[in-house]
Each structure stands twice: as C-alpha cells, then as structure tokens.
Write a protein that binds this DNA or RNA. Structure first.
Lengths: 122, 122
DNA sequence: CGTGTCCTTCACGAGTTCTTCACGAGTCCA
DNA sequence: TGGACTCGTGAAGAACTCGTGAAGGACACG
C-alpha cells in the first residue's frame, strides 16, 4: 500500500505525514523543502528530548557533522520561520546552548498529556 | 484495493467517471488522452496527499520509474493545461519540489474534510 | 499513402533549494 | 571589561529540480 513508511506523527496541532512529505498545521498544508521536512521529522520523533546537532545531521544529511558546519543551524532557522508563520504565538523548537535543539509542541511553558490518535511519539 | 472501475470520483467541481474515462468539469466534458486521464485518477484518488513521481509512474505506466525519465512531469504539464483551460482561476495540481505532486480541488489554502456524494476518496 | 493523435524523449531556461560564508548579538567567566 | 564561544540569520553562488516546447516514432483511419 501507499501507507507503509507513511504513519503519521502528531505533535500538538502539527500533523506530519511521513510517507507523503506533508505537514499540516491546523489543517493547512505547510510547504517545506526536503531538508526542512526531514529536520522536522528528526526533531518531532524525539519530541521533548534534546537532540544534538550531530544526531540531527546524521538523520537529515547522513554522515558525520564536520567542525564548522552550520547547516543544522541554518535549517533550524528556516524551519522556525515556516512554523511560526503558520502558527504564530507558538514556539516549537527550543535551543539548548551547548547541547542541541528540543522540539516541544506545547505552548511555551505548558506541558500537558497529549492525545495522539496516530502513531505515538517515542 | 480501491473501488471497482465503474464508480465516480468527485473532486471539487470535477467529476471523474472511472468506468467511462470521462471527466466533467462543471458539466462540460474534458477530452483527455488515456495517460492524462489515468494520471488525473491517480492524483485524485489521493486528493490532498503528496504523491511521488514513482507512485504516479507505477499507477499510470506500470513498473519502475527510471532515473531521468520525465514523463510524469510532461503529463502533469499537459493535464494542468487542460484543467486550467476548462476552469481558469483554479489550481488543482501543486508541485512539492523534491517530493512529488498534490492534487487539491479546494480553493488554494483551505483543506477541509470533504463531503463526497459518490465514492469516497481514500 | 497522407493526416492526425498520442506517446516518448530531449533540451533549455526558469525557478528553487542547498551550502557556505560572514557579521553581530548574546552568554559565560575570570 | 574583555576574550572566547555559541547561535541566529542575511546573502550569494552553486547545484539541483521542474516546466514546457519541440522533434520523431508508432499507430489508426480514411
């Protein structure tokens, strides 16, 4: 079927359809590039956890992050812009200086038990 | 499987009669070639979702898309022309660079649970 | 045959995306 | 306060993806 790698991640109001490269924010489709999408997936799969740049680089670009390579940061920036454009008043990606990034779908400061009606986030 | 070949897909103002190879746009019949018709069906069956070139190729041509084969793009272009000729001011087929194409009957921007009064889309 | 339609492939230009660089803001610590 | 370090992000060119006109082949029909 066309649904195999295509489970769906739910992260707050975000719906990430893995098989299709589609992200819906409150119903509206976001247009993400391939790198942006894969970065979002890498972050959302580990929602709530801090993910290092090395790990993010490995999942999105494949291979080893070289010293001085800022591509992860650049794409986090792009991704943030698109997420915030679609859903202002919400911060999804948090920076933990020296450690990495953390994807947190809840409104800033608020943690709540989510109801996921699709694949569970880790 | 999906539905038998004699049902009808409704996608926005488009009515696609599977058994007859007939497409009606606001009542008027479109004249599509076989490839164009099957491409439209492959897209419309998964309306709202991004469908990759590989998947489209498999449904329309059958078999595996080879690197460098642009036939899907060429037929998307032809299909777009005919759809837009029949219904200007509407964009049905959206490109998602790096992923594939998405058929979206609703006015740009709005996704909603559709009411199909024929066969349901997936 | 001659003509028309459809299909496939090629090629070029336009448009997007990716990578890298560079500068500045913020933080930490002595 | 000053230095070292971490991040955010605009910008520019390279690299890649996509849109589409056109050429040529296959096939059907008169």
């Amino acid at each position: 079927m066309h649904q195999d790698s295509s489970s769906t991640l739910y992260a707050g109001e975000l719906e990430i359809r893995l098989g299709e490269g589609l992200v819906l924010a409150t119903g509206r489709a976001l247009t993400l590039s391939v790198r942006e999408f894969e970065l979002l997936v890498a972050l959302a799969r580990r929602a709530g956890a801090i993910v290092t740049r090395e790990e993010l680089y490995a999942s999105v670009w494949g291979g080893q992050l070289r010293a001085g390579d800022r591509s992860v940061d650049v794409y986090v920036s792009k991704l943030r812009n698109k997420l915030e454009e679609a859903m202002p008043d919400r911060r999804f990606i948090h920076t933990h200086p020296g450690f990495g990034y953390r994807f947190q779908p809840q409104p800033t400061g608020q943690l709540s038990r989510d109801v996921h009606n699709g694949t569970l986030l880790d």
